[in-house]
Amino acid sequence: MTAQSVLLVEDNAGDEALTLRALKKHGIVNTVDVTRDGAEALEYLFCTGKYALRNSEPPPSVVLLDINLPKMSGLEVLLHIRADQRTKLLPVVLLTSSDEERDSLDGYRNGANSYVRKPVEFNEFAAAVQRVGLYWLVLNRNPPQMQIAATAA
């Protein structure tokens, strides 16, 4: 069984560092790849551009996707992920500062599997990241199509 990996799409370096710290601190040692904007995230997932050589590697177990990204918003990235056969069933967790109902609704409409608000208070934030990591990397079972998509890609 190949190691489960995480794709974190986050443009804020502070949030990135705090997320990685929270995961590590709670013993989640899976590989976490980070892309800094939506376009880069799609290159990573579809193995194009600077990620063309990623072809042989399996897709991530889960994408932690921030909504507020430069160039292409997280919601647009999500639409692209759902529109492609290879990533249609890929688990995507929207991880965002916003508690706007509109964002949450748009997120689920665009096919998010989960919507998690990042608390400002560090301990709450760390606890949220830990639970998300444990749930999607340990508890949750991904659809078998993921393997098919991986070979198709």
Binding site: N12, G14, D15, R21, S97, S98, E100, V120, F122, N123
Partner: peptide
């Protein structure tokens, strides 16, 4: 403005609080 506040003003605060705690 609200949207921007909701998204953009919280992230720096999270850094301030998070790294203080770190």
């Amino acid at each position: 403005f609200s949207y921007s506040v909701a998204h953009d003003l919280r992230a720096p605060l999270r850094s301030i609080d998070g790294f203080s705690q770190a």
